[in-house]
């Protein structure tokens, strides 16, 4: 077993504490056994972060911004990243405008399908404000689902089978009915990537994901 001097010192301190405070040999042996366990000492510094799927990947402006996001904390993320996410969302719309032979001003983000559910326009600023704070909301007392227009709850978790890419595309590009840019009428298909869950990826019992391939 690998031991280091810090642990030796700690064991020494613990043993002297036990000797001073307690005459029960069993207790001392139990504590001794615990100290024979692994060494978990040290300070660990954050290198990666994730809340919702794909947010940093899709809306992060560039490599530096994505690195900065990974070593940030949620309480600061809105102020740090919202504006850049909004610009990126509009830039993606502009890119399609130009590719379709239109001008950038002709194609903008349109308040999305949540507008009807929430009763107010979910503007690009509101949407990116929500997304910039990169946390996954999980309801302890409600059905868990990332978002599904057919289910009366949403933003309550993320199941393995939730099609988070399609949901994200619908929220970013789908407009009020969720079907804007649906590949029809000369418009691009931007509300589904056309793939679904592979059945053997998941199981019904813990740990709920399939054996490696």
């Amino acid at each position: 077993m690998k031991l280091n001097s810090i642990k030796h010192i700690f064991v020494g301190l613990l043993l002297s504490f036990v000797v001073v405070s307690c005459n029960n040999d069993d207790d001392m042996m139990m504590d001794d056994d615990m100290m024979a366990g692994p060494d978990f000492s040290g300070t660990f510094a954050q290198v990666d972060h994730m809340g919702r799927p794909g947010i940093n990947t899709v809306l992060g402006a560039d490599g530096d911004a994505k690195d900065a996001h990974n070593i940030s904390i949620p309480a600061n993320q809105g102020a740090a990243f919202q504006m850049a996410y909004q610009e990126r969302l509009e830039a993606l719309h502009d890119a399609y405008a130009i590719a379709l032979g239109l001008t950038a001003e002709d194609v903008d983000y349109e308040p999305n399908i949540l507008s009807g559910i929430l009763g107010f326009d979910v503007t690009a600023e509101i949407l990116t404000s929500v997304l910039a704070t990169d946390v996954l909301e999980v309801a302890p007392d409600a059905q868990t689902v990332y978002f599904d227009g057919s289910v009366p709850v949403g933003f309550t978790g993320r199941k393995l089978q939730d099609d988070v890419i399609d949901i994200s595309l619908i929220l970013l590009f789908g407009g009020r009915d969720g079907a804007r840019f649906n590949g029809e009428g000369g418009l691009p298909q931007l509300v589904t990537d056309g793939v679904g869950l592979t059945a053997d990826n998941i199981t019904t019992t813990f740990p709920y994901i399939g054996s490696p391939e």
Partner: peptide
């Protein structure tokens, strides 16, 4: 107990994961 709420007003845990490297 979750006392924070999501965008539609349901009580939720706000969760995120991190990896942290030993210094």
């Amino acid at each position: 107990e979750a006392t924070g709420t999501n965008v539609i007003g349901l009580p939720v845990y706000k969760t995120w994961i991190t990896t942290n490297r030993k210094q």
